[in-house]
Design a protein around this nucleic acid. Structure first.
Lengths: 367, 367
DNA sequence: TTGTAAGCGTTATCAT
DNA sequence: ATGATAACGCTTACAA
């Protein structure tokens, strides 16, 4: 029946429809170059046989895989999930597939994944941020495929960047606090290692403070990881140095949530005693007893536009001048004017270490 | 220089290394079938030229794409992100790539994505759950590639399912509450539409209750969507019918968090007045003022084992008897013995409707 | 151990 | 509008 051991191929369709394989191919790729009746016949036969062109063969012949590669740091943080979903959705709408890989914030791993995707034959690439392993530029140049750096915006290279201006966002957020009258600031930051977005945001805070000649006490700058528990821990560390800041800028939403919950536990009122602001807006940011002021970036927007930009670059449609993705400040109840006096010093017990993690849960294994 | 217009090909490497293309191929695929010196020469030339085998050509010749497809409902819920990350990680370790698509809990869309992946030439497939569009089985049969149904466990088809026993998990969780002495239950469930995992969990609750002859008042069963705000809303709805339940089983973590926060707002003590339990364990579940009892499934475990199972099935290594993924009950402070008397009825104001969503934030656009 | 050459299933170039 | 046929770049018998 079928001339191939496994599966139907174009030759089968051609034979049964009484045409050549060239016509079968044309019927699918250039429908209007084929007479209506022949096309109908071919389509009917193809449907009956359940035939669809073999991806690899097509890729080999056209030198197009129809696949876009993407390397993200992780799937568990920030706006990445929504961006990826939107990216895939938009790619699928344009008959492209998404090859996804993760770097876990490790430049070497990212390089390896990029290489893998490139060798896999992707037509385009989405990377996060603009600083990568030193071998990346050469690699990209060799393969010469369109590449987009997502979640950053660089006026110098506007058409390869799609994202918010991280610096401006935190600059503005900090200004908001300064305008409210704050002068004693604290910063809860995630590690900026291998993360140019975080560096840019931090610089935004510093620039806003410097502009108003506000100095920040070194002990009020706490750098750590992601996480709610981490936010609680870092807040306590900051509170060990009096007078406590009246405004706390957090590098991400989870740190802000942790700080907020810890304030609640310690009896520090937000925003009366301390204002807390974050970055990233997931549902819980607005659902805690005191909703948290934050910066919102539309992951959907970033993902969708990465797809659109790549597609139009691949198809030669040069109708796209990609530019900065807007971010917005969401002013909520967690930020307000500073309190007048100082927060009374709290007894926080002895100095803590991060590794004394305990889970209070009694786990019960279900067979 | 290079015989192809763009890019280096095996022929170039062969020519420069003074061997045939067959030997180049062998040097990479069967290193020990090539003499050490020749292999070294080839590898050196290949590295200099930055050559790597063309994916599509290799796929066409070997009838293996080295790609695994996966269709997940979404990336923003539950354990999916971690599962996908582990899946990709494990695939990469085995020189495979991940083609990812989303169904958004829509069977038609899922079918479309499956078709797309299949035509893209994936070697294996990961789907979530075991109920799909009616055309799926035939499609899978036609392509004849190994497929795994993730996040479910079916003793009848143990080697195509990798996941927890959803029914058992919620059966056990409910029993835990019954053993504590609860008799008045409430359920906050997400819609079971197109979601066999949710249906199984719900049945687990019902079976445990039935076994102890506990009836649940219809007004104490509230079905809705995902989300913290939804949890708050549904909790209020349940509270409108007195006497209030003393134990609340939530179909997912976000509903549990919402219910918890709303109890806090309304002055209902947890667990003294009401026990609250959920499903899924993300960080915030254990970081709220009252940590929430829940069921933890290891997304990493599910993802990693999907990869391992597929790989070993593809390579013919039949050393894998895939089986149930363990889930565990995490007993935390949100579940305890029931209170003696009834909760005094609260004044909740007029009946609400879900669509009166408001965001209290003042958004400020950043240029 | 290495080379020769026949595929793998399309698409694209030329004719007709 | 349609058909032959040569790529596309690699793998893999089969020979040597």
């Amino acid at each position: 029946m079928s001339s191939s051991k496994r599966g139907t191929i174009a030759k089968d369709v051609a034979r049964i429809a009484g045409v050549s394989t060239a016509t079968v191919s044309r019927a699918f790729n250039y429908p209007d170059h084929v007479s209506a009746e022949v096309r109908a016949r071919i389509e009917s036969v193809a449907k009956n046989l359940g035939w669809a062109p073999h991806g690899a063969a097509r890729a080999l012949a056209t030198r197009r895989s129809g696949a876009i590669g993407a390397v993200f740091p992780t799937l568990t943080l920030g706006d990445f999930p929504r961006a990826i979903q939107a990216l895939q959705h938009e790619l699928a709408r344009n008959k492209h597939t998404l090859l996804l890989a993760f770097s876990e914030y490790d430049l070497d791993q990212e390089l390896g994944q990029i290489r893998m995707l490139l060798e896999g034959g992707v037509d385009g690439l989405v990377l996060v941020g603009k600083s990568h392993h030193e071998d990346v530029p050469e690699l990209l140049a060799r393969y010469g495929i369109p590449t987009i750096h997502a979640f950053v915006f660089d006026p110098a290279a506007p058409n390869t960047c799609i994202g918010p201006d991280n610096h401006k966002a935190l600059y503005r957020l900090t200004r908001h606090l300064i305008d409210l009258g704050h002068t004693r600031f604290g910063i809860l930051g995630q590690s900026a290692r291998n993360n140019d977005r975080v560096r840019a945001r931090l610089q935004g805070v510093r620039d806003a403070l410097a502009e108003s000649s506000i100095a920040i006490h070194p002990k009020h700058f706490a750098e750590g990881q992601w996480g709610i528990a981490e936010g609680k821990f870092l807040l306590r560390r900051i509170l060990r140095h009096s007078p406590a800041p009246t405004a706390l800028v957090c590098g991400n939403g989870y740190l802000a949530i942790g700080a907020m919950l810890e304030c609640q536990r310690l009896g520090i009122r937000v925003p009366e005693d301390m204002s807390i602001v974050g970055y990233d807006d997931f549902e819980i940011m607005s659902e805690l007893p005191v909703p948290i002021t934050t910066v919102r970036v539309s992951g959907e927007d970033v993902g969708r536009r990465c797809a659109q930009t790549l597609i139009s670059r691949l198809t030669g449609t040069v109708d796209e001048p990609p530019h900065e993705c807007s971010a917005e400040l969401l002013l909520r109840a967690s930020s307000g004017p500073p309190r007048k006096g100082e927060i009374p010093a709290l007894d926080l017990g002895p100095e803590e270490h991060r590794d004394q993690e305990i889970d209070e849960a009694r786990p019960v294994r279900l067979t």
